[in-house]
């Protein structure tokens, strides 16, 4: 028969402490894992599909005559334009010449780069000036007044 002495009670204490500490390490592992399972911060619906901060009816020049500024789309400025017939288009607002940010001139129906006088039409094609390539166009999906911009 086993006799109960100090050593045994020490084992008992050790075992209980061990169970506690092992549980603590398990929790320490479970915490990051559970946090990892949560959806990522900041982005709404994936890095390449973003709900624009403007509604369709907000796409017009404000009191100062400014067109809504490009917004952050996966680290690139995205310019939204609205043609007179109501078509909404989205472009990468980085000029293909020397990477200035282009603006939309709704009165002249073109996209203009202030830096070196580059002009693009509403399809992003170069009309005049130094830009070597057309602007990169993004896909636009309308959900009511909401504008969803995506890159395939």
């Amino acid at each position: 028969m086993a006799t109960r002495n100090g050593s045994s009670s020490r084992r008992k204490w050790l075992l209980q402490a061990l169970i506690g500490v092992v549980s603590a390490t398990a929790a320490g592992i479970a915490f990051p894992v559970l946090a990892f399972l949560r959806p990522r911060r900041q982005l709404v619906a994936g890095g390449l599909e973003v709900v624009a901060p403007y509604k369709v009816n907000q796409l017009e020049r404000d009191a100062n005559g400014e067109w809504p500024a490009p917004f952050d789309f996966g680290g690139k400025p995205c310019l939204l334009i609205k043609k007179p017939d109501g078509t909404v288009k989205a472009f990468n607002a980085v000029c293909t010449h020397l990477e200035c940010t282009v603006t939309y001139r709704s009165d002249q129906q073109d996209i203009f780069c202030n830096c070196h006088n580059g002009v693009f039409n509403t399809d992003g094609q170069t009309v005049s000036g130094p830009p070597p390539k057309p602007l990169e166009e993004y896909d636009v999906t309308l959900r009511g007044e909401q504008i969803i911009v995506s890159r395939s």
């Binding site: 990051p32 946090a35 990892f36 949560r38 990522r40 911060r41 982005l43 890095g47």
Partner: peptide, 26 residues
């Protein structure tokens, strides 16, 4: 969290490293 395609793989890994909590750790 990973997206296996040439145009999204890098972005998704970058996202794991920055946006996903403890993504850097995993």
């Amino acid at each position: 969290h990973y997206k296996p395609s040439a145009d999204r793989a890098f972005d998704s890994v970058q996202s794991i490293m920055t946006d996903v909590q403890f993504g850097w750790l995993i």
